[in-house]
């Protein structure tokens, strides 16, 4: 009986519900472009489109399963505030869509440390390989992929670590109850697990050998792993844009909690908020062109001249 209870506890976690919904959605999403292409008279399978649409649909289903849309649906339908169905105490909070900034801060920090650990292991493997001339443990393609993933994952870990510190500390440092948009804040965090999933998936989809900077023309010729890495990159970017809006506008509005004298705020508060907002502007800038210029099909794809 205890085992059944524990199983129920785990299944009811937001993350689990989200993951199941997301995987089903991704499967359906992968099939959609095939259907459209068949209707257009083209060969059905294009790995680039399949992966992209699959990710998009999967992401939406995942967020729905997580319960991320519940608050907004209530607003649209003009329904009164209801008691949250989410857990409000214990470890289960950290695996669910919780809007308390302290929970979100811890979620971010733990995730950041985990990503750092994995990326660190990749680097360790690379260093081990390079300790002697000759290839002892892996092929050059694998080495390049590990180094590239090390780079992009460390970047993600830094971004997420900053978000974590910002989320936990900023409201406390200015005497506030929570961040300005707790719901958006929680959403920002939950973009990250699918991004990590895509990065890990890229390792098993042929990887990519361009380094995290992904310069064309090499990146245009890269295997499917490149596509997955870029999709993950976008998710992290989306997360950070949403998160930084929270912080960036949090700053001016909570000054009324503060004393009148400037210089009465702790320095990192300013650093975290301003820095986070300033940082997020350029990713919005980078995404569309970068994204569309790079990715393309999987194995067997040519030199970029293929027709969709």
């Amino acid at each position: 009986m205890i085992a059944l209870r524990q199983a129920q506890d785990i299944i009811s976690l937001g993350l689990v519900k989200g993951a199941v919904a997301g995987l089903i959605g991704a499967g359906v999403g992968r099939g959609l472009p095939a259907g459209v292409r068949l209707a257009m008279g083209l060969p059905a399978w294009d790995p680039g489109w399949a992966v992209t649409v699959g990710t998009l649909v999967g992401l939406l289903c995942y967020l729905w399963g997580l319960g991320a849309f519940r608050g907004w649906m209530r607003w649209v339908l003009a329904q009164p505030e209801k008691e949250s169905r989410e857990p409000t105490s214990g470890w289960a909070r950290y695996f669910s869509f919780d809007t308390n900034h302290k929970v979100i801060g811890v979620q971010y920090m733990v995730t950041s440390l985990l990503i750092m650990a994995v990326a660190g292991v990749y680097a360790l493997m690379g260093r081990l390989e390079m300790a002697q001339p000759g290839m002892q443990y892996m092929g050059p393609g694998t080495y390049n992929t590990l180094v590239s993933l090390h780079g992009i994952m460390m970047l993600a870990a830094v971004l997420i670590g900053i978000s974590g510190m910002m989320n936990y500390l900023v409201p406390l440092m200015i005497g506030a109850r929570d961040m300005a948009f707790p719901h958006l804040n929680a959403l920002s965090y939950w973009f990250i697990p699918p991004a990590v999933f895509l990065l890990i998936l890229s390792l098993f989809s042929g990887g990519f050998d361009t380094g995290w900077t992904a310069y064309p023309p090499l990146s245009v010729r890269a295997p499917l792993g490149m596509q997955l890495m870029l999709l993950a990159f976008y998710l992290v970017g989306l997360s950070s844009i949403a998160g930084s809006i929270n912080c960036g506008e949090h700053q001016p509005h909570h000054h009324h909690f503060q004393a009148a004298r400037p210089g009465d705020e702790p320095v990192p508060h300013a650093h975290l908020c301003l820095g986070s907002y300033g940082h997020r502007l350029p990713p919005a800038y980078l995404h569309p062109v970068h994204r569309h210029g790079i990715p393309h099909g999987g194995p067997g794809a040519g030199d970029g001249h293929e027709i969709l």
Binding site: N246, E249, P252, H253, L281, A284, Y285, L286, H287
Partner: peptide, 22 residues
């Protein structure tokens, strides 16, 4: 001053402006 949410929308639009400027 301005409501939180409105300022949030403005900030969001600034990021979108960056996207289009790219």
């Amino acid at each position: 001053g301005m409501a939180n949410a409105y300022l949030g929308m403005l900030l969001f639009l600034v990021s979108e402006a960056f996207l289009f400027s790219a």
